[in-house]
């Protein structure tokens, strides 16, 4: 019995160790000329999920920046995915004990990751935050999409499509989330510049595509004279688009936020008239560049907007849109 127990314990410990390490792959760069003599700088890039297309694009950007600057980096994330906050904390601890030169992190939780990142900073390892915010101000730089500006640009484009007058509905993902508030504000501020545009009461779909779909049906029934709907993230953009597709309604102008394999066909079929696509590639590229600058003692901007691309059915074949829609190439 004791023997069995000890074997089980051993297996358990090994598996915990394996899980804790997560998936990581190290990219080595051959070019070492620009690196300092002696020890080469090594950066840990810790994301929410390594398989996620979004973070794969971050990695693609980091790859290019690392080659240009001659640093090494490893790319990792908890294999249990975005919700495994403890797993991500362990990955940061691992990076600290490995004495990496710097950490770039997309935090799974804005609060839970604060103590461990502050521990890294206290140990002299600079931290750069990408994609999702971290509730501390001790990091070197924060690179993400400026939601207010991006949603504002979407609103301006819609106002042009409407010639400055019409009735517009907003469906948002969840009441009170930072991103949701920023996107709604950016869009509404843009709409407010046009007195001919009426904006309806914001409705929420709690990140549920089915609810976004039902909500859209009800909004269309209640407002037969509706001209446009703005959906604030991926589930909403898909739900609204599917509702329009069910009714074969191409008259309503849908403006969305984000891109995915479910969203691209909606643009192609003409239901989605425009969507804001974030640039994770820039987060990786500019993130590594900023880290190298910091390590070389240069001044780094505290907040950096990584930009966006507004993809429409008309411009979706352009190289810029294609790069935004398929950051890893079409086969991915």
């Amino acid at each position: 019995m004791k023997k069995v127990l000890s074997i089980m314990l051993a297996v358990f410990m090994v598996s915990v160790l394996l899980v804790g390490c997560g998936k990581s792959d190290t990219a080595k760069t051959a070019d070492s000329q620009s690196a300092d003599a002696g020890a080469k700088k090594k950066i840990a890039i810790i994301v929410k999920g390594t398989e996620n297309v979004f973070y794969q694009s971050v990695k693609a950007g980091a790859d290019v920046a690392a080659k240009e600057t001659g640093v090494e980096y490893y790319f990792t994330g908890s294999s249990a995915g975005e919700t495994d906050i403890n797993g991500q904390v362990s990955l940061v601890e691992n990076a600290i004990s490995q004495k990496v030169s710097g950490i770039i992190i997309a935090a799974s939780d804005a609060k839970a990751l604060v103590p461990v990142t502050e521990k890294a900073i206290a140990a002299g390892i600079p931290v750069i935050v990408i994609d999702s915010g971290l509730q501390t101000d001790k990091y070197t730089s924060f690179l993400t999409t400026d939601n207010v500006a991006a949603a504002g640009a979407a609103g301006e484009s819609l106002a042009k499509m409407l010639n400055g007058k019409g009735k517009v509905a907003i469906v948002n993902f969840v009441a009170g989330a930072q991103g949701a508030i920023e996107r709604e504000k950016g869009f509404k501020d843009a709409m407010a510049k046009y007195p001919g545009i009426e904006v309806l009461q914001t409705q929420y779909y709690n990140n549920d595509k089915q609810k976004a779909l039902s909500l859209t049906q009800d909004i269309l029934t209640a407002n037969p004279d509706l001209d446009a709907i703005f959906a604030c993230n991926e589930p909403g953009t898909v739900g609204v688009g599917r509702a329009l597709k069910e009714k074969n309604n191409r008259k309503i102008i849908e403006i969305g936020f984000d891109s995915s394999d479910d969203i691209i066909p909606l643009i192609k079929d003409g239901y989605l008239k425009g969507t804001i696509v974030q640039m994770p590639y820039n987060m990786g590229y500019l993130g590594v560049k900023a880290m190298v600058d910091k390590l070389n003692g240069k001044e780094v901007v505290k907040n950096q907007d990584t930009g966006f691309t507004f993809v429409t059915p008309e411009n979706m074949e352009s190289p810029e849109s294609q790069k935004a829609l398929y950051p890893l190439g079409k086969n991915n």
Binding site: G49, G81, E82, S260, D261
Partner: peptide
Amino acid sequence: NVITDSLPIS
């Protein structure tokens, strides 16, 4: 979530 890595299956 494990089956899909929490991504939509499209």
